[in-house]
């Protein structure tokens, strides 16, 4: 489908970037914990002496600060690259889905097919989507701020009252995923769940016509 390649699977984008941050976190934590432990053991108080040593080391500290700056710039660069992909909007979207969030349910509309899915207290709404296709979301809230979150897609976006929120997503794997409201929205926020069911394209066509 046109534009499909421009929109990345947010999950794989997240995983690639997260692994860099995770790796860095583990290494830095390892170094700092090691140094602290080394200091505590090696320099534990033995006698009553006062150690003599330098009070500062400006050259070493300046070099260190430059290294930190380089790390920060690297992280920010990687982040910007990934964000360009996760925030990208396709020139012409594939499937359009309207999201209406309200206390404490979801309504999903398919304007191209005249189909609507409405959640009720007995029935958790299921959004059906075709696999590997760009989906153009247009979300709005009827009351307070909600947030459309699909943990498996590693993506969320807030839904505001009186203002449309637009974003594109693509799901590359068939399956059923839980979705939740992530922004606290009042009494029954806990129960504001939905499902995203990603199906093959022909199955999606059958579903919208049913």
């Amino acid at each position: 489908m046109a534009g499909a390649l421009a929109i990345a699977d947010t999950r794989s984008q997240f995983t690639d970037l997260f692994s860099v941050y995770q790796w860095l976190t583990v290494v830095v934590a390892g170094i700092v914990f090691g140094l602290v432990l080394f200091a505590l053991v090696r320099y534990r108080r033995r006698g009553n002496e006062y150690p003599r040593g330098k009070d500062k080391h400006t050259v070493a500290e300046s070099i260190y600060a430059l290294v930190l700056t380089a790390i920060a710039i690297t992280l920010v660069t990687l982040t910007f690259r990934t964000e360009d992909k996760t925030d990208a909007v396709a020139a012409n979207g594939g499937v359009r889905v309207d999201i209406v969030a309200f206390q404490w349910q979801w309504r999903f509309g398919y304007p191209d097919y005249g189909k609507t899915v409405l959640g009720t207290t007995e029935h958790v709404p299921t959004m059906v989507l075709p696999v590997g296709t760009v989906v153009r979301f247009d979300g709005i809230s009827r009351d307070v701020i909600h947030s459309f979150w699909v943990p498996a897609a590693r993506f969320k976006r807030d839904e505001f009252p009186k203002r449309h929120t637009k974003f594109d997503l693509r799901f590359d794997r068939v399956g059923t995923y839980i979705g939740r409201c992530a922004e606290f929205c009042g009494l029954r926020h806990t129960n504001m769940d939905f499902y995203v069911r990603v199906v093959p394209r022909d199955a999606f066509q059958r579903w919208v016509k049913s």
Binding site: R44, R45, R46, Y50, Y64, L68, I71, V76
Partner: peptide
């Protein structure tokens, strides 16, 4: 994202100084 990430520089300097004080000291736990 830029301003928030760059905070790691002053934070890292503070860690450098804290651990630098301990190394070479006479530490009582």
């Amino acid at each position: 994202a830029l301003t928030s990430t760059i905070l790691l520089v002053p934070a890292g300097v503070e860690y450098f100084d804290l651990i630098g004080t301990m190394i070479g000291g006479s530490i009582l736990l």
